[in-house]
Amino acid sequence: MRALLRNVAALAALTLLAGAALAWFADLTEDDVARNRLEAETRILRDLIGAETFAGDHKGRPYGEDLVFCERDVVVLRVAGSGYGGGFRLAVALDLDGTITGVRVLDHVETPGFGDILNAPSAWLDSFTTGDAHAVTGATITSQAVIEAVSRAVDRVRLEEMCPP
């Protein structure tokens, strides 16, 4: 009984200490982590729709969580999905006819190597702009989840509501 109590007390004390250390450090790094993520997302969006169009702030009319940007002749939707390794987020750019002009992955946790089709520059991501995207051998779950998420984004576009002239 004494040994059991000693074991429980040691584990509990160490767990508390570990939790406190992690909470303190997570708090300390929170702002830098958030800024890094936003910068990375901004770089991806500039690459997607051109630096002169995307100023860096997410201006445009907010439309739920979906709309990132809506100006002139482009609307960018953000859409989440779930792949092999976990969740991912996409940015899908459409012109005012509803044609896909570009797809970028904002973040993902797919297996390195198999998930490389998600990292720009990627011929596979570019294949969405020709309307001819197919699932990829060796990355079936990943690629099908992305295709499904892109079509969900396209279905959800309501251009008249989202981008009134």
Binding site: A21, L22, F25, A26, T29, D32, V33, N36
Partner: peptide
């Protein structure tokens, strides 16, 4: 801790 430090810095 190392992972957080890398993500931040």
């Amino acid at each position: 801790l190392v992972n957080l430090a890398m993500e931040a810095y």
